[in-house]
Amino acid sequence: MSARFNLVLSDELNRRVDAVATDPETKSSLIRKALAMYIAAVEAQRDRGLHVGLFDPATREIKTEIIGL
């Protein structure tokens, strides 16, 4: 079973989503993927104390830690 939501985005966030999504179907897919990633990050932090970050694959150096999830 699927659930349908109405979602209101700020103009700025909508512009940013539009910049990544190339067509309306991609926009919905992008939001579904973003929610799945967010849930995975929250569960990893809650259940295992892990943190989310962006790292340089060449140096394996953490460039950005995402906090406040």
Rank of each mutant, 00 (worst) to 15 (best):
M1Y: 09
L50R: 13
L13D: 11
R15N: 05
Y38I: 02
R46A: 12
E12M: 07
R46L: 10
G53P: 06
E65M: 15
T26V: 02
A3K: 15
E65C: 06
R4Y: 06
I31V: 02
F5P: 03
E43I: 07
N6A: 07
I39D: 09
S29C: 01
E61N: 14
T26N: 13
G68H: 15
K63W: 08
M1L: 12
D23G: 09
R46M: 10
L13C: 10
R4I: 01
L50T: 02
F55K: 13
L7A: 11
L7H: 10
R60G: 01
A40I: 00
I67Q: 15
T22N: 13
V17D: 04
Q45W: 08
Y38F: 07
R32A: 09
E12N: 12
G68L: 14
I31E: 03
E65S: 14
D47W: 05
L7E: 01
S28G: 11
L9G: 13
L54W: 06
V42K: 14
H51A: 09
T22E: 12
L69C: 11
E25C: 10
T22D: 11
A34S: 07
L50G: 07
A19R: 14
K33E: 00
P24G: 07
D11H: 01
I67G: 15
L54N: 01
L30N: 06
G53N: 09
L30I: 00
I67D: 15
S2V: 09
I39N: 06
A19W: 07
N6D: 12
E61D: 15
L54Y: 10
L7N: 07
V42C: 12
D23V: 00
G53W: 08
P24C: 05
V20R: 14
D23F: 05
V52A: 06
I39G: 00
D23T: 00
E25A: 13
M37F: 06
D56Q: 05
E12L: 11
L7S: 08
A58E: 15
T64V: 14
V42T: 12
L35F: 04
D11M: 02
A21E: 07
K63S: 15
M1E: 14
G53D: 05
L30H: 08
E25Y: 12
E25N: 14
D47Y: 04
K27I: 01
N14T: 03
R16K: 14
L50Y: 14
V52R: 08
V20Y: 11
S28D: 05
E12G: 05
I62E: 04
T59K: 13
A36N: 08
V8T: 08
A21G: 09
L54A: 08
F55I: 00
V8R: 05
L30C: 06
R60Y: 03
A3W: 04
R16G: 03
V42P: 03
N6T: 11
E25L: 11
F5N: 09
T59G: 14
R15E: 08
R15S: 02
R32H: 14
T26M: 13
A40N: 07
R15T: 02
A3N: 15
I62L: 12
P24W: 02
L35E: 03
V17N: 05
S28W: 05
V20K: 14
K27Y: 01
L7D: 01
L30V: 00
S29P: 00
A40C: 03
G49A: 12
S2L: 06
L69M: 15
E12T: 09
K33D: 00
L13E: 11
A58F: 13
V42F: 04
V42M: 10
D11L: 01
A41R: 13
V52W: 04
